[in-house]
Computed example of a mutant assay.
Amino acid sequence: PFAPRPAAFGPWRRPDRSTFDSPYGGAAPDRPAGRRTRGRVAAAAASLVLGLGLLGGAAAGSWLTGDSGSRPADGDSYARAGSAWHSVPVDELFPRTLRGAGPGGADRIWTRIAVAPDSSCGGAFDPLLEKALAPVGCKRLLRATYTDATSTGVTTVGLLVTKAGSGAMRKLSERFQAEGLGDRADLMPRPYAAKGTAAAGFGDAQRASWRIRILPDAPAVVYTVSGFADGRKVTDPQPAGEATRGGATTAPAQSGLGHDARGIADEIERAFRRALSKTEAPAMTEVPR
């Protein structure tokens, strides 16, 4: 049910400037003064509308690609974010390969080894994390698992599409930050252990590092959980924020599993926002002349 298929949405389109240009071009010597005035007023109004449209499009584009903290001025983009997921090809949402930074800034490459069928959220989180996420609901859960270049580490990444409005998402994001819920070892995501892959032995006891990102400007939660591919148990898992600090000497830190959790979460959030940027903005209305 989660097979690749073409996205139904087209990219953002800027309005064609010619649509708004005055038809008069310049004042003809034999044109009545009233027509010249009306033409200039219409052109000025058109320029104003065009400028506002381009500014609005730029802000929406920045929000969707994650380039700034801008948020959409209305609920259209937010609403599209909640429904666009089912039309996004798998390779766009979960690219086959990802690149990021590992310990010491070294390049790190991750390869996708499994994609789970889209599903409900049952069993995907520790009970306390499931309870913490309950206020925003679960419309759909999309997951994939990646391995590093040496196949010694595996990471499950999930995109939880919520049922909540923007106010509820902002409230949940603020709560996670204020109470440090994303750093608690009793509120961890669970891995997707795909049979026949390097992640076959990736269970709850193998979890080493994780990251949870509540998107305040979209109905989505992006999370990751990483561990060792050889099935070894981890007695002291560490959130990605701590495992990627300079000088950290824990197993999740020195193995790079904290960097895996952080880097893959960041890359999938960017992929999600890029996919949303292909949803079509409402067409602008031509200024009456």
Rank of each mutant, 00 (worst) to 15 (best):
P1H: 12
F2Y: 12
F2P: 08
P4S: 14
P6C: 01
R14T: 11
S18P: 00
S18C: 03
F20P: 00
D21K: 13
P23N: 01
A28D: 06
A28M: 06
R31F: 03
R31Y: 06
A33D: 09
A33C: 06
R35P: 00
R36S: 06
R38W: 06
R38D: 09
A43C: 04
A43H: 00
A44M: 14
A44E: 13
L48P: 07
G51T: 14
A59V: 11
G61Q: 14
G61A: 15
S62I: 06
S62T: 10
L64N: 09
S68T: 15
S70P: 00
R71L: 07
R71M: 00
A81D: 07
A84Y: 02
V90Q: 10
E92Q: 15
L93C: 08
F94S: 10
P95R: 01
G100I: 03
G104V: 02
G104Y: 04
G105L: 05
I109M: 10
I113V: 15
I113T: 11
A116V: 13
P117H: 12
D118W: 13
S120E: 10
S120C: 12
G123E: 11
F125N: 05
D126C: 04
D126K: 13
P127H: 11
L129S: 04
A132D: 07
A132F: 02
P135L: 11
C138S: 05
K139C: 11
Y146I: 03
T150F: 12
T152F: 02
T152R: 14
T152M: 08
G153E: 06
T155L: 01
G158Y: 03
V161P: 00
K163Q: 15
G165V: 07
S166A: 13
G167T: 10
K171C: 01
R175C: 06
F176T: 09
L181D: 05
D183N: 11
A185S: 14
D186S: 13
D186N: 09
Y192M: 04
A193G: 08
A193L: 04
G201Y: 01
F202S: 03
D204Q: 04
A205V: 13
Q206L: 08
W210H: 06
I214D: 00
P216E: 09
D217H: 12
D217A: 14
D217Y: 00
A218G: 10
A220K: 04
V221I: 15
S226G: 11
F228I: 04
R232L: 04
K233C: 00
T235F: 08
D236M: 09
P237V: 11
Q238M: 15
R245Y: 01
G247S: 08
A248K: 00
T249N: 08
Q254F: 02
L257S: 13
L257P: 00
H259Y: 07
H259D: 05
I264R: 01
A265R: 04
E267Y: 01
A271M: 06
S277V: 08
T279V: 05
T279K: 02
E280L: 08
A283N: 12
A283D: 13
A283V: 03
T285G: 09
